[in-house]
């Protein structure tokens, strides 16, 4: 338990003593929010999950998708 507390204290003190690190963490958090809460949710949905009825249907869906393509 004492070791765990020491580890927690190590991180807490480390984060508290940051100077440049605060700016960097702010950038990291903003970046992750944009990536996961905006881009992933609204623009990068799982195509198969959205277009195939169930996971069991994925093979047939992909099979038809690659074989029905006549472009190029």
């Amino acid at each position: 338990m004492r070791v765990v507390m020491q580890i927690i204290d190590f991180y807490v003190q480390g984060f508290r003593s940051m100077t440049l690190g605060r700016t960097l963490w702010a950038i990291i958090i903003i970046k992750l929010i944009i990536m996961f809460a905006v881009l992933k949710v609204f623009f990068f949905r799982d195509y198969l999950k959205e277009n195939a009825v169930s996971k069991e249907e994925y093979p047939e869906f992909v099979f038809k998708s690659i074989n029905n393509n006549t472009s190029n």
Binding site: M35, F44, R45, D46, Y47, L48, V62, S65, I66
Partner: peptide, 17 residues
């Protein structure tokens, strides 16, 4: 990680394959 987003959305055939 954004590359992995693209696998699932833009490159789903490849991603499954």
């Amino acid at each position: 990680i954004i590359l992995e987003f693209q696998f699932g959305t833009n490159w789903s055939n490849y991603s499954w394959f």
